[in-house]
Simulated assay, not measured.
Amino acid sequence: MKVFLIGFMASGKTTIGEELAKVLSYRFIDLDQFIEKQEGQSIKAIFELLGEEKFREIENKALRDVAAMEGNIVIASGGGTSCFYNCVDFMNKTGITVYLRAEVEELLARLIESKTERPLLWGKSKDELNNYIIRVLDERKKYYEKAKITVGINDLDVNNLADTIRAINE
């Protein structure tokens, strides 16, 4: 079975994904790391050299490649993965989607520290970043809310999430 973690950047998909994979005894794949290994360059470099549109094409192919792998896998998608190429529908057909829902204030606090590493956030002031999060979260919400499971990151218990996933899989 495949478990796809979706949600805004910095919502904890990688950190929670690693924990969840351990609890479920599944393999873990971070989609961004998978892309970087396949492409031989960082996500930042791909954005700089090829632009977002080409990155989204690469990301879509990588998602489908990972989903086609044998075995049980927890997959941490990128923040925008579920919002392009009908990927959220693909993930729902292929496995279980989990939306890690975070409030704007929490995302801002997390992203202010890492904005130089994230191509879509380069050069934004705190106010610009806050406005960006509000706008993009509003645009992406319709995709994120298609997930089979939604859990708030502040009250997330990985063991309970694992139990919910096991119950759905039975």
Rank of each mutant, 00 (worst) to 15 (best):
D89R: 08
I58A: 06
N72T: 10
F28W: 05
V104S: 13
G12K: 12
F90H: 10
S125Y: 10
T94I: 09
G71N: 12
S25E: 14
R64P: 09
G7N: 06
F55D: 00
Q38A: 14
N60L: 01
I16T: 08
V98T: 06
N60I: 00
I96N: 08
I29K: 07
L108H: 12
L121M: 09
E18K: 15
A45V: 11
I29C: 06
R101Y: 10
F34I: 01
I58F: 02
K54F: 11
E106R: 10
Y85F: 13
P119V: 11
L108V: 12
S42M: 13
I46R: 01
A45P: 06
G123A: 07
D127G: 08
S11P: 01
D89H: 12
E52A: 02
A67Q: 10
V23F: 07
V66Y: 11
E103Q: 11
C83E: 00
L120P: 02
I58G: 04
E18F: 10
M69E: 15
G17L: 09
A67F: 08
V104T: 15
K44A: 13
N72G: 12
L31V: 09
N86V: 06
G17F: 10
E113R: 12
I6C: 05
R118S: 09
E53L: 03
S25T: 12
G7Q: 10
K126H: 07
S82G: 03
T81Q: 01
T94M: 15
E36M: 05
F90D: 09
E106T: 15
Q38G: 12
D30G: 05
T94D: 07
E48S: 12
A109C: 10
Q33R: 15
A68T: 05
V88G: 00
D127V: 12
L63M: 06
G40M: 11
A102F: 04
K13Q: 03
I58L: 09
E113V: 14
